[in-house]
């Protein structure tokens, strides 16, 4: 609808006289000059207004949404840099008068949860110890699952896949207690290994679906060519499929890292206080009922906990886009 005015303006008046003027050929809208060959009227690139109704709507919405999401972050950062006396004044939007990093230090190394008084650092390292094996294990198993389901149709593979997908829709809560019993029986209850196994299993349905669909979109002929070339199950997986699938591995990694890092339920159920992941420990710091509520420490602790998924998004977001772009070139 923004197009109509421009189109009509120039073309209403035609000037049939041919003038020779090399630099006039590209101009239009000026009644006296007509081009070398071109008739007067719209020519060349279509002019676009910078301040059109469409742009105002789009950028206006974007700005409002940005503010909506950035404001809480701003309050958190500002509060975490203030001392308690300043916070008690109540101006939550005001920037800190006296910047202090003490709340950050306390959140990381000194805050007490139960008997431990070494802050979030313990939880951080627990979370890392949970995260790395869980992510590697779940992606490794799920990618092989997806590859087998997509390319090596075996008897009952469709049924197997259907069961796996149904598994994705069963609420976790139903399985909590049975898993507690199972872990206890094999002697892994309350250990990090047990939690890693739980995370790996619960990541399986969605990751397998992800990988299966991706591998299914890889041209079937590539797989056939590799078979003619004498490559077996693992050779095709490692030498053909995996090198082609960087984008989907990055997607799976983002999903798993954020999912496992942010997990609270499994962490609190399947481990014990010494091994609590960062999220559980954050909760224990923020919700401690004794003493004064130290808002600045709570804010710092929360930001610290959210830092890992945030970093992952920033780093792999770029890689992710690049991976997709590289994969888009038809090979």
């Amino acid at each position: 609808m923004t197009k109509a005015p421009h189109l009509l303006k120039g073309s209403m008046t035609y000037d049939t006289a041919m003038e020779t003027g090399p630099d006039r050929a590209l101009r239009h809208g000026d009644g006296s000059s007509s081009g070398n060959r071109m008739v007067e009227g719209p020519a060349g690139r279509k002019p676009r207004k910078a301040l059109s109704r469409r742009n105002i709507l789009i950028y206006g919405t974007l700005i409002v949404v940005c503010l909506y999401y950035l404001l809480p972050l701003y309050v958190m950062i500002v509060t975490s840099l203030k001392g308690m006396p300043e916070i008690r004044l109540g101006n939550i939007f005001a920037p800190p008068v006296e910047v202090t990093f003490q709340p950050w230090v306390k959140a990381w190394a000194e805050a007490c949860t139960g008997l431990n008084c070494d802050g979030l650092s313990r939880g951080f390292f627990n979370s890392v110890k949970i995260l790395i094996p869980s992510v590697i294990l779940s992606i490794a198993i799920a990618s092989v699952n997806g590859y087998a389901l997509a390319n090596w149709r075996f008897k009952g593979s469709e049924t197997f896949f259907a069961i796996l997908i149904v598994g994705a829709f069963i609420p976790y809560q139903v399985m909590i207690y049975p898993i507690v019993i199972m872990l206890r029986e094999i002697g892994l209850y309350g250990s990090l290994t047990g939690l890693v196994i739980v995370h790996t299993i619960f990541g399986m349905p969605i990751l397998t679906l992800l990988f299966r669909n991706y591998f299914a979109s890889v041209p079937q002929e590539l797989f056939k060519a590799a078979r003619v070339d004498g490559a077996g199950f693992w050779a095709i997986y490692f030498q053909i499929m995996v090198p082609m699938s960087l984008p989907i591995f990055v997607v799976a990694m983002i999903l798993q890292v954020t999912g496992i890092w942010n997990d609270f339920l499994f962490g609190v159920i399947y481990t014990k206080p010494d091994l609590y992941p960062m999220t559980v420990q954050l909760n224990n710091i923020v919700n401690s009922t004794q003493g004064v509520k130290e808002y600045n420490v709570n804010m710092a602790a929360t930001i610290l906990t959210g830092l890992v998924p945030l970093t992952i998004y920033f780093i792999s977001g770029k890689l992710f886009v690049r991976g997709i772009a590289a994969g888009a070139v038809k090979g």
Binding site: E221, I240, G331
Partner: peptide, 30 residues
């Protein structure tokens, strides 16, 4: 018999070249 044991070479409609390998890599893979 497996495809690789039949003494055949095959050419596909979509070329089916391994995108991450060079042409030499493609030729020598088998």
């Amino acid at each position: 018999a497996e495809p690789s044991q039949r003494g055949i070479g095959m050419v596909f409609q979509s070329y089916a070249l391994y995108p991450q390998m060079t042409v030499a890599g493609n030729l020598s893979f088998g």
